[in-house]
Each structure stands twice: as C-alpha cells, then as structure tokens.
C-alpha cells in the first residue's frame, strides 16, 4: 500500500520550537494511521522531530536532507 501523505507541514524558516509545535498541530488534525510530512530548515529539527516522533509512539517512515531542508515522513499511530 502506498503511503499517501495526508498533511504537509511547512516549517521552513522557523526556529525551535515551532517545527515540533506545528507537527503536533498537524498530527492532531489527522486520523491514526495517516501520514504527515514535515519540512523544516531548523538544524535542531534533525534531532527534535525524530525524538518527538519516537516519544509520541509514531513511526518515522522516512527522513531525508536536501540542501538546507529536512523532510520527515511520519505515520501517526
């Protein structure tokens, strides 16, 4: 089954703690099982988003870096 992204969070340009706050807001808006994608340029999100994902019990499907942009694809549980 292809993972269709339900919601994309654009946190590019925003500093800590905004990427996590926006990710949480998006996660609240989607159903369990849905996939959200978070795009951030804050270097702190490299560790912040994966630890938030783990602690929320969500699944990190993919994390990639392209230039200054970190992209995380997460499944809400």
């Amino acid at each position: 089954m292809a993972d269709e992204v339900t919601k994309v969070v654009d946190a590019k340009g925003l500093s800590c703690p905004m990427p996590v706050l926006l990710a949480k807001r998006a996660a609240d808006e989607v159903e369990a099982g849905n996939v959200i994608r978070i795009e951030a340029t804050d270097a702190g999100s490299k560790s912040d988003i994966p630890s938030w994902t783990r602690d929320m019990g969500y699944e990190m499907l993919e994390s990639e870096v392209e230039g200054p942009v970190y992209t995380f694809t997460i499944r809400k549980k």
Partner: peptide, 9 residues
C-alpha cells in the same frame, strides 16, 4: 519554549 513543546509532546 519548554511548556509549549511539552504540550506538543
């Protein structure tokens, strides 16, 4: 920062 992040957690 910590309290809002806590809520996000």
């Amino acid at each position: 920062i910590l309290s809002s992040t806590g809520a996000a957690y």
